[in-house]
C-alpha cells in the first residue's frame, strides 16, 4: 500500500517560487490500477516523479508499506527504486545502440531475471529481439519499454502518458497489453494521462488541477482498451 500524506512540492525559489503540488493526500492499494487525470500543467508528472522517488518532496510523506521515502538517503532511494519500481514514459527512452533484447536486459538484470523470452513474448516482440530501436515502429518501441519495465518484476509500475506518442490503433494495442498484464501479474499500476477516455480503463481515477487533487472516483464501470473512445 502506498500512503501519500500532505505532499507539497515547489519549483524555483524566491519571487518565482511555484507550488507544483499542494497538500496532496491519497492512498493507493496493492494491485490497484490508478489513473491520474488532469490538464497539461496540473502537476501530474510532478506527482508521479515525487511518489516514485525520482524527485525530492518539500513537505509531506510518501510511505510504501510503512517505508517512508522522505527519510531515505540517495543510496537508499536508488535501492528502493531498484527493488520496487519501474517506469514507462511517453518518449520511450530506449538505449539506441543496444538491441531490443539488451534493452530488456537492462530491467531484467536488476531482478536477476535470466530468461527474458517470456516478457518479450508477452509484448509480442520475440521475433524482433535482435533489432535496434531505430528499426522499430513507435508502438513496437513502446512495447520494448513495457517489456523492459516488466522484466524487472516491479511491485509498482509508473506510466507517464504511455500512449501519448502513438496513433489510435497502436495506442489501444499498447494500452490493452498493459491492462491485461496488470490483471494477470497483479502489480500496482499508476498511470498519468490527460485523456478522460483512457481513464475509463482504471480501477480508480484521481483528478488533478493546479497541483491539487480535485476528485477521486471509483470506476465501477471499468472498460477495456477497445471499448473506450479515443
Amino acid at each position: 500500500m502506498i500512503e501519500i500524506k500532505n505532499l507539497t512540492k515547489y519549483y524555483g525559489r524566491g519571487e518565482s517560487r511555484f507550488k507544483a503540488l499542494d497538500d496532496v493526500s491519497v492512498r493507493i492499494n496493492d494491485g490497484e490500477f490508478v489513473v491520474i487525470l488532469g490538464a497539461s500543467g496540473s502537476g501530474k508528472s510532478t506527482f508521479l516523479n515525487v511518489i516514485s522517488g525520482l524527485e525530492a518532496m518539500d513537505g509531506g510523506s510518501v510511505a510504501y508499506d510503512g517505508q517512508t521515502l522522505e527519510r531515505m538517503s540517495e543510496k537508499e532511494l536508488t535501492k528502493f527504486r531498484r527493488e520496487n519500481t519501474a517506469y514507462i514514459f511517453q518518449q520511450y527512452y530506449l538505449l539506441p545502440h543496444l538491441t531490443v533484447e539488451k534493452n530488456v536486459r537492462m530491467g531484467a538484470d536488476l531482478a536477476h531475471n535470466k530468461d527474458i523470452l517470456p516478457v518479450l513474448e508477452a509484448v509480442g516482440l520475440a521475433e524482433k529481439r535482435r533489432k535496434f530501436p531505430a528499426e522499430l515502429s513507435g508502438g513496437e518501441q513502446q512495447r520494448v519499454a513495457i517489456a523492459r519495465a516488466l522484466a524487472k518484476n516491479p511491485r509498482v509500475l509508473f506510466l507517464d502518458e504511455p500512449t501519448g506518442a502513438l496513433d489510435e490503433k497502436t495506442g489501444r494495442l499498447v494500452l490493452d497489453y498493459m491492462i491485461n498484464l496488470q490483471a494477470k501479474q497483479d502489480f500496482t499500476m499508476i498511470m498519468v494521462t490527460h485523456n478522460a477516455n483512457i481513464a475509463q480503463t482504471a480501477d480508480r481515477i484521481i483528478k488533478m488541477n493546479s497541483g491539487k487533487i480535485v476528485g477521486i472516483t471509483e470506476n465501477a464501470d471499468k472498460k477495456t482498451a477497445y471499448e473506450i473512445g479515443w
Binding site: 538505449l95 539506441p96 545502440h97 543496444l98 539488451k102 536486459r105 538484470d109 529481439r129 535496434f132
Partner: peptide, 27 residues
C-alpha cells in the same frame, strides 16, 4: 531521421554478458 550509424552497434545476442558490460562495450 538521425539514423544511428551502424558503428556502435552489435547484433550479437548469444553472449551472456550482463547489461552493464553490454552497455560498456556499446559505449
Amino acid at each position: 531521421k538521425g539514423v544511428a550509424k551502424e558503428q556502435g552497434k552489435s547484433r550479437d545476442g548469444r553472449d551472456k554478458k550482463s547489461f552493464v558490460e553490454d552497455m560498456k562495450s556499446s559505449v
